[in-house]
Structures are given as structure tokens and as C-alpha cells.
Nucleic acid binder design. Structure first.
Lengths: 340, 340
DNA sequence: TTGTAGGCGTTATCAG
DNA sequence: CTGATAACGCCTACAA
């Protein structure tokens, strides 16, 4: 049982440093902000004083004075558990924080669960951040363009809604990547290639299904063997069962995520089918899930953490007022392992 | 290619609202802060003005004036990917955000990767937050007591270091919970019960192993069948293999996390052993991982999200200056499913 | 019950 | 190159 001490801090201020160094506040402010208009000796003296007093600038005062919060929101429009259940997002967040490390910006977490999203909007609209990252399974269905007009917004993954006004985002070319993944299966001589697709209301789900479809069509193969999951392991298993029941003749499957692929493989083995012998399976992501199962996944690698880092870079540039291209597409490639 | 508009906001201020409502700033401030010293009609008028102008208080100004940041740090002393790879943490974060929802506090994410943790410390020491949540696999190995003396700190999970000064934390009784889980196996008639323990440098790993050990000893059973993992799925598989190699006679295994249990089961099945027939397996967590595999896990349930919510409640109380007990222990119970 | 006046710690504009 | 001197938007005695 203890009560916290009264809040008022006793941190040294600019003023104190100025006194200590025998100069004016303005001068201290200048050296703190790295102005080059200060004579070397004065600068040294100030630095010494700062050191001695352990001075750290007060963020609130700074914000108030120059109207910048030095904070960026990380908006997650859904349940954290679900969100982070997908290693892809964890990696993106990792990349974002890494990308912001060098800067003075701080990340504030905004979990906008369905209902109280109003609080989030008020927070953002209240000018409490200088920009926002939006990353989600259903990116774009939630954030009015009004937001983007008041501050830089960078999306992780292509927003679902039509591009008006054009949004900033970084993503991979899911269509092309899926096409290539499917082509790999075709090259291996597979012909009855099924797919476990992601939800049709998410860009990644949509695009990967489209890529599979395109590759199949181009090869003159049937595109009827399709089932949907929601990117979770369990849904992958479910979809695989459905596929097996409806198309017992399938000889391979292109799965839209490693997590789902893991579930699919479990079902395959459970039914006594060999992988890749009877059924080859191709994943997507190259997340930790790809190598944590019994069978190492052959999969389409996408640089998730790099996507996050790129988002950070984009945001920083936007914040500096530099011109920035709206979309940044990262490279993917196939990682050959044991499942196909 | 677009450049962002100049940053300066044009948000209405207290002043503007005052003018609009025909009162003074103080009065507006009072109604905004819910003072009861305002006559109903004036209050109504002010509210109307606020509504009309879409006024939102400026956080920086407020912070500056009353020396509170209304922000709480969420400190994660490690790789996000690894951190969120464990559903337990995702759930805790979920609980924290939920618990903070009603309040005006905001969460700032501090990923203190090994090296630049200094930045984090400076940030915290700089008075940029009013408190800090610390949640990690290795909680406690990193944060000097100095931090706790300058602001409320609430840990998720018992800190590893001796309790001086006593830290605030919420956790479950891992020893007792593990004991009960092991006892369940004993009650089922198992006798050669192995364990896949967590890392010995984490409280949860330590305590659960101790619980298993205690239950075994109390029943006069051998405590030699032990292997260690790091709470990841892959490590669970690895440990299970080791166990099988060293103790081919084992008839069950108490695993310190569902994720590891999932890996263990994969290995068991792979080796042609039936679960729970040949080997019963008991998990720990009751996370989504418990029900996402082929075999539904019997496991020790711990209320992860509630832990987070409780952390938030504790923090809020601390921030209000209310007396708060240092440790809050949440209940666990066994969930019977198919693996044991 | 309401208004006045300072101050919170910085930055920015202008003289010197 | 350096130092006054206003803001920045809000809170809070103190007065009225």
C-alpha cells in the first residue's frame, strides 16, 4: 500500500540551463535544436550545463510552441489478439518501430475496436498526432478521407476503397506474386491446383485469388477449385477439408497465407495424404509459421518487416514535406522448401 | 506526388469557444473539465458553442499547464515479432487497451530492442508519460528501480528480480496452477509425467516447472523427465523430441504453454503416438492456439485479457493517487478438452 | 457563479 | 551571434 508522490516534476528547464551556462534561453534553445548560429565556445558551455543538469526538453511545451506533437498514431482497426495473431502484422509493426528509431517520433497505439472508434477519431482529429499509420485486415473501410486531408496517412497494404484521393501505401504486388507462386506449381507438373483464398473483402485476399486465377487461366487449367479462409490457421484447415470433400482429385493447393497453409497441411496429413507427394502446398508470407511446422513450407516470401520500415520512411518524408510517391511496391520471391 | 500542407492547425481554442458562448475562458475551461460551479444555462450555452465549433481541447497545452501527459507507456523490452508471436501477450495488450478505453489516457508503444533501449529510458525519464506498463518475456531484467520511483510502473507477470522496492504487478499463481494441471494428469492415472518447461530465466517458466515438480514429488513420482523450450511452437517440438529420445516410456506431458504444446503434439503424432491414448498432453494458457490445432488442447486456463484489464485498473488507481495493493493474482482453472 | 491575470516550458520574431 | 519579448492553449488561484 503506497500512494504515488504528487505529480509535479522538478525537471530542469531551459531557463535553468540558461542560468547555469550564463546565457539566454534563446541561445540554449538554439543549441538544443542544433542551430549553427552559435559560437563553438558558447555551444560547448551550454552542452556542459545540459549535461550537468540532466536537462531533457519538455515535449508538451515544445508541441505547444511549434504545433507539432512528434507523435504518430498506429491505428489498428480491430481486435489486437486477432491482429497480432497474424505474424505478418507483428513484423510490420516491428519494421515501423525500427524505421522510427532514429527519429524523434513516438508511436501511439490506437486500437479502434468496432464500437468506440469514435474515441480514436476524436483523438486523431484533435491534433494529437502528426500522422497516422493504418494497418489492418480490413484497411480502408474505416477511415474517412477527411483524416488524410488533415495529416499524412500511410497504409500498410493497399486500401480496399477506390483511390480517391490517392492514399499513400506500401505493399507487395499480390496479384503478380500469387501468379508466380501458382506458376511454380504448374511448372512442377501439377494441373489440378486448388486454392485456399483469403476473405474477398480484403485486398490481399482478393489479389492473391486473382493471381492464382490468372495463372491457371493462362495455362488453360480449371479455376473451380477454390475455398475461402480468413487467414487464420483454423480457417485454413476448414477450407482444406472443404476442398478435399468437393475436389478429391486435387494434386496441389496454393494457400494465401502460411498460417492457413499450416492448417491445411494438418488436414492433409490427417487424411493420410502425403505432402508434397500427393498434394503439393504453396504458402504465402514466409512468416515464422512457414518453418515452425513439421513440414517446412515452400512459400512466396514477402518482406513484411521491410514493408513496415518503408512505411516509416514514407511517413518521415511526408512529415518533412518532401514529395513522395503514393505507392511503394516491395519485391517478393519464392522460397523453396519441402512442401512443394 | 504531393506535398503535405503546412502543419499549422486551425483548430478552435478555448478562447474561440468563450467568444462564441459569450463567456470567459475560465468558464469554458470549467465546463470542459466538468466543474459543478457553473450555472446550468451557461453550461448549456458553452456546450452548444463547443458543439458548433467542434472544439477539442489541445493536449499539449493541457499537459503544459497541469504537468500531466495523459499518456502511459507500453514498454516491450524485445522484438515485437517474438513478443506478439505469443498470443498471451496479444491478449494482455488487448486487455490493457480495453481497460484504458474509458479513460483519457493514451498508450505509447516503446519497443526497447536490446541496443537502443537508452532512447526508451530517456523518453520515460523525460517525463513524457505519466506511467508505464512493462510486459515481456523477461520482465524486470531491464528497468531500474529509479524508474518506478519517478512514476507508477505496473508489470504484467511477476518481475524476476527480488521485490525491492516492491513492484506492482498482476499475474496468476503459476506454481499452484501448474501443480493443479499436473495433478489432473496424476488423477487420470498417469505416472511417467514429463514436462516441457519454459526458460529458467523467466518467472513463468520457473514457476510452472516448480509447480509440476511439487505435484510430482507430492505424489512420489519421478521429476527427472524435463526438457526446456522458449515458449515458441518450434521449441515445443524440439523439447518433445528430446523428451521422447531420453524417456521413451513417458505416458504424458505437462507443457508450459499452448504454443509449445501444439508443437509437442505435432511431434507425438509424427512419431505415431496417439494423443491422449499413448501420451496425454496438458497445455497452459488456453490461448487461441489451444483450439486451432487438430487436437483440442486440455489446458490450464489463465485469463490473459483480464490480466491486462487489471493492469489498467491498477495503473489508473495509482495515477489517481489511491492506495493499491502491490500484487493482484488472477484465478486459473482447468479446461478439459481432448488432449488429456 | 464568473472573470482577471499569471504561469507552464518552448519556439520564433526582431532588434541589437 | 545573442538576447529580449511575444506567442502557443489551457489551468488555476484570486478577485469581484
Amino acid at each position: 500500500m503506497t500512494t504515488v508522490p504528487p505529480p509535479r516534476r522538478v525537471a530542469p528547464t531551459l531557463e535553468a540551463v540558461a542560468a547555469e551556462a550564463g546565457v539566454s534561453r534563446s541561445t540554449v534553445s538554439r543549441v538544443v535544436n542544433g542551430s549553427n548560429q552559435v559560437s563553438p565556445d558558447v555551444e560547448a558551455a551550454v552542452h556542459a550545463a545540459i549535461e550537468r543538469l540532466h536537462y531533457i526538453p519538455n515535449r508538451a511545451a515544445r508541441s505547444l510552441a511549434n504545433n507539432q506533437t512528434m507523435a504518430i498514431a498506429l491505428v489498428i482497426p480491430e481486435d489486437t489478439t486477432r491482429f497480432f495473431g497474424d505474424p505478418y502484422f507483428a513484423a510490420i509493426v516491428q519494421g515501423i518501430t525500427r524505421g522510427l528509431d532514429e527519429s524523434d517520433y513516438v508511436l501511439t497505439l490506437q486500437v479502434a475496436q468496432s464500437h468506440p472508434r469514435e474515441k480514436t477519431m476524436r483523438y486523431l482529429a484533435g491534433g494529437n498526432v502528426d500522422g497516422a499509420f493504418v494497418v489492418s485486415h480490413h484497411s480502408g473501410d474505416l477511415f474517412p478521407g477527411s483524416l488524410a486531408s488533415s495529416m499524412p496517412v500511410v497504409y500498410g497494404g493497399r486500401p480496399l476503397r477506390p483511390d480517391d484521393p490517392p492514399a499513400y501505401f506500401v505493399d507487395v504486388d499480390n496479384v503478380a506474386a500469387a501468379e508466380r507462386g501458382t506458376q511454380y506449381l504448374i511448372n512442377k507438373g501439377r494441373t489440378r491446383i486448388a486454392t485456399v483464398a483469403g476473405p474477398p473483402d480484403m485486398p490481399a485476399g482478393l489479389d492473391r485469388a486473382a493471381g492464382w486465377s490468372a495463372a491457371m487461366a493462362a495455362a488453360g487449367l480449371s479455376t473451380e477449385r477454390i475455398a475461402y479462409g480468413d487467414f487464420s490457421l483454423a480457417s485454413g484447415a476448414r477450407a482444406m477439408r472443404e476442398l478435399l470433400d468437393r475436389f478429391p482429385d486435387l494434386d496441389s493447393v496454393f494457400v494465401a497465407s502460411d498460417l492457413m497453409a499450416t492448417g491445411a497441411i494438418q488436414v492433409l496429413l490427417e487424411r493420410g495424404l502425403s505432402v508434397p507427394g500427393d498434394v503439393a502446398v504453396m504458402g504465402f508470407d514466409d512468416s515464422p509459421a512457414a518453418t515452425s511446422g513439421t513440414i517446412q513450407l515452400t512459400t512466396v516470401h514477402q518482406p513484411s518487416e521491410a514493408v513496415g520500415a518503408e512505411m516509416a520512411r514514407m511517413m518521415l518524408a511526408l512529415l518533412r514535406g518532401e514529395p513522395v510517391e503514393h505507392r511503394r511496391i516491395m519485391e517478393t520471391h519464392i522460397v523453396e522448401r519441402d512442401s512443394a
